[in-house]
Design a protein around this nucleic acid. Structure first.
Lengths: 133, 133
DNA sequence: CGGTATCCGAAGCGATACTG
DNA sequence: CAGTATCGCTTCGGATACCG
């Protein structure tokens, strides 16, 4: 809507793509599909905790952006397979790099988090709205 | 709250970190801070469209996770500077890689998106009745 | 200058029920 | 099997007003 033609326009675009992978399930699904094609129910079972609705929504978003290809086999019963496109595999690389970094450094992050939360209740009263997990 | 000890625990953790960078403003701010420390208002002006509230919230989250360090100079008027920590700079690398990929390939993504949206009502029998406006 | 507090609409997401 | 439709709760995020 309010797109000024600033030199950062491409950053806004980039952020859109990154926002996609920032949601709750996309990374899980993309990483699963790097291992090969999967059927709807296979993904549902592999990605623990995902609801049918969110699986559909997430897969549609990935399909729309060209990361995932959906193939329907009109057998009985129905059979639908999802696999990464070339674009999907390419994006999976930097995504995996970020994921690996996150896995490798989670302790440092959670240490910092505990430290921050620990001294938060003493001097200031800013928390109470950030206690999520 | 309900963290099951599944073998995918580390994926869940990784996803938490990735979720942080997936929000609307984090990437912009982190990338800005890779260029050096910035004052609150400097960030506000550099990251176009961000509200005061979201700037505060995002910076707090980054500080909590140990990516950003906040330094207060009790001068008059007040002066607060934000800079990346070592952890922040380390994370910025894979993050930049993902961002660069997104910038380099945005056209492919938006092409796919237009293609998907274009044929949404034509060939597929899935919708057929949902195109009501 | 650098925040915090509150209100509120929008979006995310799960639960449930129904369909081809 | 592989979805779609609807509901309702929760979180996100902008607008506004106030504070040390």
């Amino acid at each position: 809507m309010e797109q000024r033609d600033r030199p950062m326009g491409h950053c806004t675009r980039a952020n859109e793509v990154i926002s996609l992978v920032g949601d709750k399930w996309t990374v899980h699904i993309v990483m699963l599909l790097t291992q090969g094609k999967r059927r709807f129910t296979e993904i549902e079972r592999a990605v623990d905790g995902i609801s049918r609705k969110m699986l559909t929504v997430t897969l549609r978003a990935l399909e729309r952006d060209g990361f995932v290809e959906r193939t329907v086999y009109p057998t009985v019963p129905l059979r639908v397979e999802y696999c990464l496109t070339d674009l999907g595999f390419e994006m999976a690389e930097p995504l995996r790099a970020l994921g690996n970094w996150a896995i490798a450094n989670q302790e440092r992050v959670f240490d910092a988090r505990r430290r921050f939360d620990g001294q938060a209740g003493e001097t200031m009263a800013i928390n109470a709205h950030k206690e999520r997990r």
